[in-house]
Amino acid sequence: DHNWDAAVEFVVNAGDQKASSLARNDWYRLKRSLEILKSTGSPPSSFRVPYDSFRDNLNSPDANDDFSENDISVQNIETDLDYDFLCFFLSSPRIDLYRSIDFRCEDMLSGADGVLSEARWLLDLGLLPNTSSATRAIGYRQAMEYLSKCRQQGGVSSPGEFYWFLNKFQQVSRNFAKRQMTWFRCEPMYHWLNASKPLDTILEFIYDAYEKEAETLVVPDSIRMNKEMRNSREANALKAYRPRNRHFVGREDCSSVLEWIRNEGCKSEVSCMEGAAI
């Protein structure tokens, strides 16, 4: 851990008490906290982000009287923002979004330069899954755990083990997208647009919104994305959702991946590169 506990204690003693709540081995945020302490003499938490003022004012009783989900009159709310912002959140209906994520996960496992190849490189560097920012990243952690197990088994993986890994990769990716949508749903500054609609229509609306600078922006029903599920049918469809792969369906479809694991995935690429350099 490169003495993580001692580093956290050092930053806490320097003045940032919240450093102790950082995710373990999140060296980027820990270093950034120390940089801010050195340059300003104050911890990051002492600085107020301008958008916080906007959100506080928008959540005040006076603002709530005039606020609706679809129409936001930003100009009527006094804020500390230095600029006027128009913020848009583009997403597809949840089922379509999940399906696209599943397909993307499949694509990341195809080819010689996919996520498994990068996971091999990280393992060859001596890194372990879930021990740093890179090895905690979605896809990398699951690929490293799967490849580590294959190495323990002498480079052997069954189709069932591969599909378990793929399913886990897809699941955590969908869960991350769900958390993102939950976060944006609570941010009233964003106008939700349905990304499944024609791209030209979406771009034309965004362009006109910036050009016209209307006091109140109204998103047309034709391109508006609903923040909440509209009915029980949609909710039941989400509960019953199951991946439908397009590349990896049967046992034979993953044979090339299993062969790569057997022939290449359990060899140390770093050792080969060092040997070539010598």
Rank of each mutant, 00 (worst) to 15 (best):
N3G: 07
V8F: 03
E9Y: 01
F10N: 15
F10G: 11
A14V: 09
D16A: 04
K18W: 11
L22P: 05
W27S: 09
R29H: 06
K31P: 00
E35C: 11
S42P: 08
P44I: 05
S46C: 12
F47I: 11
V49C: 13
Y51H: 14
S53Q: 02
F54E: 02
L58N: 06
N59A: 13
P61K: 03
D66N: 13
S68R: 12
N70C: 08
N70T: 11
D71K: 11
I77C: 06
D80G: 14
L81K: 10
D82C: 04
F85K: 01
P93T: 04
D96C: 02
I101K: 00
I101W: 00
S117L: 06
S117G: 10
E118I: 05
E118Q: 14
L123I: 10
D124K: 11
L125C: 13
L128N: 12
L128Y: 14
N130D: 15
G139F: 00
R141S: 03
L147Y: 00
K149Q: 12
Q152V: 06
G154M: 09
S157G: 09
G160H: 09
G160D: 11
E161N: 07
L166Y: 03
K168E: 07
F169H: 10
Q170N: 11
Q170P: 06
R185W: 02
C186L: 09
P188T: 04
H191M: 10
S196K: 10
P198N: 09
P198A: 05
T201Y: 02
T201L: 07
A214C: 13
E215S: 13
S222L: 10
M225S: 05
R230N: 12
N231M: 05
N231G: 03
L238M: 12
K239F: 05
K239R: 14
A240T: 06
Y241V: 08
R242L: 03
H247K: 12
G250W: 04
C272S: 15
C272W: 10
M273D: 13
M273V: 09
A276C: 07
